[in-house]
Simulated assay, not measured.
Amino acid sequence: MRKGAKRKRIQKDNNEDEAAAVPTQDNHKTTESTKPPTRAKPVKASKPEPEYFEDKRNLEDLWKEIFPVGTEWDQLDKVYGFNWNFSNLENAFEEGGALHGRKVYLFGCTEPQLVPFKDDSLLIYIPAVVAVASPFPPSDKIGIKSVQREVEEIIPMKQMKMDWIPYIPLENRESQVDRLRHQIFILSCTQRRAALKHLKIDRIKKYEYCLPYFYNPFKEDELEQSTEVQIIFPSELKPIFCEFDWELDELEEFTDKLIQEDELSEDQKDAFKEFVKEKVREAKKANREAREARRKALEEMSEESRRAFEKLRFYKFYPVQTPDTPDISNVKASFINRYYGKAHEVL
């Protein structure tokens, strides 16, 4: 055999041996790949920290449910812009509190005051709540009076969409309302702010001049004692706004002074004097009628009503001081309004 042929034969045999060895390696790999993968141990999920929410107080939203009578509509958002705390009002209904176990009628108001807050002085509309402890509603009327309005109006609350409604504490809101024995009544207003654009300006302004009305026949009204009249005279120059006291002022001197100050023209002097005299006559007549009405009310009053009036108490609540609200400690006042006078207690 030739040498070259022998080498070819040896190479051929070697190639066949290598080719035979390849499937063996593939089979080995396949066997290894079919082994099931090792299962990872499950990792226990960490439990989330429990969240704790402070329970709502039973009367927590009471002060917000009360309509702030006489507040300008565009100022309401500023009133509720602070997180005012009326826990003193809530505590008054607890055992030992001033209002515990009593029938109470509540109305709100606001008092614009310049008060310190966070190193600054701000004009704040401070909310206050007046509580009338009484077995019957203090009144179903509203007074409308301002410097700009010449005539004072006393009208039914319902004309201004206001009324006394029962307040339902949080713990009773799942109960049947008609079966509850209501002890707290609040002055509510159903006039929607969104509907104000459909009202006339004079109607909107009336809400700003509203004052909760109260008439106590045992107390002489300031109207009966007053000797002043509000004068709004349509002068040629400009309307004259002034007060005339028929006991202290002399009409001739009063008129001459207005002329000297260029408030009134000389040719309107007689007309102005007659205008003032008519207002004085109207005021004196109103005083007489008020005294007569009070006398008649006392004569016709039952003994039960008399005792109830004698036990009437007015409480005025201001917000409790907190780090998030302005310091109002120096602006608290017992005065409520011209009809109610002063509160028996300020809290």
Rank of each mutant, 00 (worst) to 15 (best):
R39P: 15
K41P: 11
V43F: 01
V43L: 07
V43E: 14
K44E: 13
K44D: 10
K47R: 14
E51K: 15
Y52M: 08
Y52L: 10
F53D: 07
F53H: 13
E54L: 14
K56A: 13
R57K: 15
N58G: 07
N58S: 11
L59P: 00
L59T: 04
E60A: 14
D61H: 08
D61M: 05
W63I: 02
I66Y: 09
I66N: 07
F67R: 06
F67I: 04
V69R: 07
G70D: 09
G70L: 10
G70S: 10
T71W: 02
Q75W: 08
Q75I: 04
L76E: 11
L76G: 00
K78T: 03
Y80I: 02
Y80F: 11
G81K: 03
G81Y: 03
F82A: 04
N83A: 09
W84G: 02
W84F: 05
N85W: 00
S87W: 03
L89D: 08
L89W: 11
L89H: 11
E90D: 10
E90S: 13
E90W: 01
E90Y: 01
F93N: 02
E94I: 01
E95H: 10
E95I: 06
A98V: 13
L99V: 03
H100P: 00
H100E: 07
G101I: 01
G101R: 03
G101M: 01
R102W: 09
R102Q: 15
K103F: 02
Y105I: 07
Y105F: 15
Y105A: 01
L106I: 07
L106F: 09
L106H: 06
F107I: 04
G108M: 10
G108D: 06
C109A: 15
T110R: 06
E111W: 12
P112M: 02
Q113L: 03
L114A: 12
V115R: 02
V115I: 10
V115M: 00
V115S: 01
P116C: 06
P116L: 01
F117D: 01
F117G: 02
K118N: 15
D119W: 05
S121P: 06
S121Y: 15
L123H: 12
L123I: 11
I124Q: 06
Y125C: 02
P127I: 08
A128C: 13
V129P: 00
V129R: 03
S134R: 03
P135T: 07
P135Q: 02
F136N: 13
F136L: 12
P137H: 03
P138H: 05
S139K: 05
S139G: 08
D140P: 02
D140V: 08
